[in-house]
Design a protein around this nucleic acid. Structure first.
Lengths: 334, 334
DNA sequence: GCCCTCTTTTAAAACGTTTAAATTAACATA
DNA sequence: TATGTTAATTTAAACGTTTTAAAAGAGGGC
């Protein structure tokens, strides 16, 4: 059916090997024959068979990207950045979203072991599911390089990590709210690291964190909405809320507004991530920027280097991106 | 390095073929040997080499999904649905976003021709870029099935189409606004089909469409923002705006609000798509629902059938999903 | 004419599976 | 004992490349 090297060889009256060499621009083959072979290949509309090539080259020019879901602006942006980067080096991305299911991650790991990818990026929210660090290490030992994005728990020599400083992000958010004069702060979301950053800001200013002001909930808009409802129902409402991410913050705000609690007049709400919608929401969202595209670029860059067999400098094995407070309209002075 | 059939064969003292048959649960191989072989395979932690298997089976268990960008809630949701569906049949998805670049689509088509995928779904906004229908037909003729989602231009016998009735969606939006009493309607976005639906609603009610009320702009929030600014700057503003999609609508609203034009008090704004944010935006967005997840499911289902070699019924080759008006807070009576 | 070198081409192995066809063994039947 | 049947196993080809080592050919110098 499809045109193969053999077809070209026959037509050109040379051996299959010569054709292969010619099409790969080897300097071992005569200039004129090379041209002739290339012409014939063009004429027959030849495309090399990626499956056969993958087998012998032991490479598929494909990487796996493990994220919880694409329907999530943060991960969508990450995916976009990574895809753009690797594509510039002729790699492709297999979209591996786990929907926060631990077993799905497992299935992907096995798929990776089968040699369907040359490497993988794991960008799951670590807190949320059972870890498979041991299996992922095995993957690396079988020579399938892995990079972690915003995930930790393994020796960086084996698995480089690209992070944002989310601890600091939460700290910045809380610190900023306190500087506005707010004293009763709430936190929404489930992330140990962010919660710790939040706590440390309170501590620095000698504020105590009441248990009732910590809301564990699903990290999307729906989860935020639930939190917002709960807050609106309280008599002694917190003055300000720091949310795990912008989506939650939007959910919180939407619920508060629905319950006639004004943002920012009654309560200030701050997110983390700085997704595009933060700027278009109404009120526009005060948040802490996480340079997710840059993180994606970096992760992709490092992964491709590993795949190419390059050794990484220690600095490249643990890369942490700074975060930045972005003040908009969802927060105001106490 | 990695464990192969040969390793197992040696250890089990049988031939490589027996191992292959055993692991594939062939009934040609003796029960006991089968068990023994499987045990050894387990023990050695064997995973079949996907590359080798792909070569001989002429299948990679992978499909390509061509979309303009993942950073776009509509396509993200489509991707999610498609991924979920095909994954249930042990297929994977290669993420092929074109960023609205025609050449990128071309590169993907060539990648597909190389046999890296068993089939592909093209879900590009047709209006926006040069079409490659001819090349895509070639793809199909080379036995790589293709499905179009919300894209047209080819004999459906070759390339089945899964669509939503966006013509009707725009019609519904305009018709609804007119029923509210609005007379001066504007349209934002570039889509022939939607614009036509919009026009037909005006015509039905005997309203004329002024050239100045058509805004061609980029179909994301930024584009909408530009449109909103232009509208806000006008003396004789339209009373209502129908936007190509929800993202544009949000951009329009955000610009209007920034320019002190109230939505919906001064201008009603309606979107199309019903992305999740439509429900969380403030004001919540009146829009026309497009059942994108269902469309993704359908497209995936049909594609996998084609890949499996099944013949499709005529009904399956052109599937159109109905749309539905969703009234929320961004629109109100004149 | 012979040897050497350099260029060009080819044969063949390899990659790790699947699978059709052939072989072997065991056993029943005539 | 010969023959046929069935079940289990193996041999070998195939998939379409890449790549190494070897072969062939072309000049050139002596």
């Amino acid at each position: 059916m499809a045109v193969t090297l053999n077809d070209i060889a026959r037509k050109a009256g040379v051996s299959l090997a010569t054709v292969s060499l010619a099409l790969n621009d080897s300097n071992k083959v005569n200039k004129d024959t090379k041209i002739r072979i290339k012409e014939i290949a063009d004429e027959l509309n030849y495309v090399p068979n990626a499956r056969a090539r993958a087998l012998v080259k032991k490479s598929t020019k494909t990487i796996g990207l493990v994220i919880p879901e694409v329907v999530n602006p943060f991960f969508a942006e990450l995916a976009q950045a990574i895809k753009d980067y690797v594509r510039s080096q002729d790699f492709n991305v297999i979209l591996c979203s786990t929907d926060y299911q631990s077993e799905e991650e497992l299935r992907y790991i096995n798929m990776f072991r089968s040699g369907q990818v040359d490497g993988a990026i794991f960008a799951c929210v670590g807190d949320m599911m059972a870890q498979h660090n041991d299996l992922i290490i095995k993957l690396v030992e079988e020579n399938i390089p892995v990079i972690y994005v915003d995930r930790d728990g393994v020796d960086h020599d084996l698995i480089p990590v690209v992070k944002s400083d989310v601890y600091h992000a939460a700290y910045q958010a809380a610190d900023y709210l306190i500087s506005l004069g707010h004293r009763e702060l709430a936190f929404a979301g489930q992330s140990v690291e962010r919660l710790n950053g939040f706590k440390s800001a309170l501590m620095k200013h000698g504020l105590e964190l009441k248990e009732e002001n910590i809301y564990y909930d699903y990290l999307r808009m729906e989860g935020g909405y639930t939190v917002g409802e709960k807050i609106a129902a309280r008599d002694n409402k917190p003055e300000a809320v720091v949310c795990l991410n912008d989506e939650m913050a939007i959910g919180v705000i939407q619920a508060l507004i629905a319950e006639k609690v004004k943002v920012p007049e009654d309560i200030s709400v701050v997110g983390i991530d700085n997704i595009k919608m933060a700027n278009f929401y109404n009120p526009s969202l005060t948040t802490v920027n996480i340079p997710v595209s840059q993180m994606g670029d970096k992760a992709a860059e490092i992964l491709l280097k590993r795949i190419a067999g390059e050794t990484l400098s220690p600095k490249e094995k643990f890369f942490i991106f700074p975060t930045e407070l972005v003040i908009r309209d969802s927060s105001r002075k106490a």
